[in-house]
């Protein structure tokens, strides 16, 4: 079960605005999905190791060698708001 308060809390963590309507709808839908997921709790997983990578790969490290960076105009090309040679955002302090 995931109630409206929890939906709102999670939405805040995920930086997702939800309309009142959406909060209600998501609460129902997410509860159904979570109900299905609950199935997992039937299993005894005490001594089971979690799998984070399905195919065993050794350390894949990169040599410390410089490669060309993007030209600034390319880095800026897709940005919504550029100012003062940087990506402009509303101030976090505002």
């Amino acid at each position: 079960m995931i109630d409206r308060t929890q939906v709102l809390h999670v939405a805040r963590l995920a930086r997702l605005q939800l309309t009142d309507d959406e909060v209600g709808r998501m609460s129902t839908e997410l509860s159904n999905i979570l109900g299905h997921i609950e199935k997992l709790s039937a299993l005894d997983l005490t001594d089971v190791e979690p799998t984070t990578h399905v195919v065993a790969v050794g350390s894949a490290l990169r040599p410390d060698v410089v490669r060309e960076s993007l030209p600034r105009e390319v880095a800026f090309e897709q940005a919504p708001d550029i100012a003062d040679d940087g990506f402009r955002v509303p101030s976090p302090q505002a």
Partner: peptide
């Protein structure tokens, strides 16, 4: 690096910051 950029021209009167990656 996040630098405070004073007020933004686009969003009238609101404070803005600029990011340098």
């Amino acid at each position: 690096k996040l630098v405070h950029a004073g007020t933004s021209g686009r969003i009238h009167g609101s404070a803005a910051s600029v990011v340098d990656f």
